[in-house]
């Protein structure tokens, strides 16, 4: 499998970051960084990572199913993650979730038909003091209201319009 030069460099660094014989440690970071570029964990990637760290593909498979951020199916180009855990719930996170789900017409872990947005109700993302909080891909947004969310989603749409 050919990887981008950026990913090759990342993988090379990861393989030397752990004590000798402990290359398996690089598995989760490798999968995460590669998923960022590929959009999902493909079977080809599972085999590639397994080969590089000296595991079987099954061992990689077993690990990746444990972690909620690793996914074998593609998500939307923009993955909208809405926290409804305690601090966010108290400040409107649940209503924000309802609003987003209604607006995008998709539910938890669903992808819109055009593949542009996907949605997920997430647990605490570490922004409780600036709740309600969401993440779009890796970007944090704090003090989010339904109006602010609408503007954000519209902004992403228009920035990507050709």
């Amino acid at each position: 499998m050919t990887l981008s030069p950026h990913l090759e460099a990342k993988f090379a660094k990861l393989l030397t970051s752990y004590p000798p014989g402990r290359q398996r440690s690089a598995m989760i970071p490798m999968l995460m960084f590669a998923q960022d570029e590929l959009g999902q964990v493909t079977q080809e990637l599972v085999e590639e990572v397994a080969r590089r760290i000296g595991c079987t593909p099954l061992q990689v498979e077993e690990v990746l199913t444990y972690y909620s951020m690793l996914h074998k199916k593609p998500l939307g180009k923009y993955h909208v993650q809405i926290c409804t855990n305690i601090s966010c719930m108290l400040t409107g996170g649940a209503e924000l979730w309802e609003h987003a789900s209604g607006k995008l017409r998709i539910g938890h872990r669903e992808v819109a038909a055009d593949g542009f947005f996907s949605l997920e109700e997430v647990e605490c993302i570490g922004a409780c003091s600036w709740a309600p909080a969401i993440q779009v891909n890796y970007d944090f947004h704090h003090h989010v209201t339904p109006e602010k969310l609408d503007r954000l989603l519209a902004g992403l749409r228009s920035a990507n319009a050709v």
């Binding site: 855990n85 305690i86 601090s87 647990e123 605490c124 570490g126 922004a127 409780c128 003091s129 600036w130």
Partner: peptide, 11 residues
């Protein structure tokens, strides 16, 4: 790993 709900300081 900071994931305890209510916690956002290590960040």
């Amino acid at each position: 790993d900071e994931s305890e709900p209510g916690t956002c300081k290590d960040r």
